[in-house]
Design a protein around this nucleic acid. Structure first.
Length: 291
DNA sequence: TTCCAGGCCCATG
DNA sequence: CATGGGCATGGA
């Protein structure tokens, strides 16, 4: 038997299953009562046999703790939310163990470029196909076959047609052009980490296929900018219905401005709680807002 | 069959 | 600045 690390959990709840299935990340597989996946190029296995305990691949406890954001102080972060915000408090109470991951920035950004106008299961399929065709194998004893996320160089080399052949549709051109910009040294990808949020968002939006929403996803999940607040179709419905009485005349820009100012420095966490609750708990009356 | 999905680009007012 | 059409693909 391979060795196993034990990670005791204390304080604020943590929910491994919900976190790995929350639409932040797209490559984890159910395996032996837990999850198999890669953190960067490191194959790992994680399970949560009890609410207050994780088991994981021996020797990988520190890496996994970092990836899962186990150090995030949710007590403080949630205390920074606006008081008396009932919709947000309900969403937190519904799944308090949801955590924002620390993903490798490139695979996060690239995955979200392939996400536009797609449902989570299909984003996942695209991600796994790209890995298998253009990544490299990362074998590990007792784990299923896995492949790393392809580098910008590998995707640039692959060519747009080969990407399109992975089911990307019109997103193939976006992903290919972005990969070429980064691989060719025309975009300072490493420099994003040194920029303040607003400048980083502006820079990312210069990449093809990256608008405000995808930039915010990448900043939140890939660069740990916890104030970044992605507004997708779900969150737009949440904001409109729960904070603007379902008024269909409220403009999208008004909703984005509200989100940025209302939720504060940990707004990204608020967004994840609201998104997760809306998507999985049926918290919204979709008919009322569908027009 | 029709509608929609963790949007973005680009052409018009 | 803001609005609307178009876009590839697949599942409900």
């Amino acid at each position: 038997m391979p060795s196993v690390d034990l990670l005791p959990l204390t304080g604020w709840p943590f929910d491994l299953d919900s976190t790995l299935q929350s639409g932040q990340v797209f490559h984890w597989h159910p395996h032996r009562g837990g999850w198999a996946g890669l953190i960067g190029d490191v194959p790992v296995w994680i399970s949560q046999p009890q609410p207050n305990l994780l088991h994981c691949t021996g020797g990988r406890g520190p890496l996994i703790s970092q990836y899962l954001g186990l150090d995030h102080d949710l007590t403080s972060l949630t205390a920074s939310f606006p008081p008396q915000d009932q919709p947000l408090q309900r969403a937190i109470a519904w799944c308090p163990g949801l955590r924002i991951l620390r993903q490798p920035a490139w695979e996060c950004l690239a995955s979200f470029i392939t996400s536009s106008l797609k449902q989570v299961p299909h984003i996942r399929k695209i991600s796994l196909t790209l890995r298998e065709r253009f990544g490299h194998p990362a074998p590990a004893a007792d784990l299923p076959p896995q492949w790393t996320y392809p580098t910008p160089e590998a995707l640039a080399q692959a060519g747009e047609a080969a990407l399109r052949d992975c089911g990307l549709g019109y997103r193939a051109a976006f992903l290919h052009r972005t990969a070429c910009d980064i691989a060719g040294g025309h975009f300072d990808f490493a420099g994003i980490a040194r920029l303040p949020d607003e400048a980083a968002r502006t820079a990312l939006c210069q990449l093809h296929g990256v608008g405000e929403k995808i930039a915010n996803c990448a900043l939140l999940f890939g660069w740990q900018r916890l104030a970044a607040f992605p507004v997708d179709v779900w969150v737009e419905r949440v904001l409109r219905q729960l904070y603007f009485a379902g008024n269909p005349d409220i403009k999208a820009k008004t909703l984005r401005d509200f989100a940025r100012t209302h939720f504060g420095p940990a707004g990204g966490y608020a967004q994840q709680f609201l998104f997760h609750h809306a998507r999985l708990a049926g918290a919204l009356d979709r008919m009322a807002t569908a027009r």
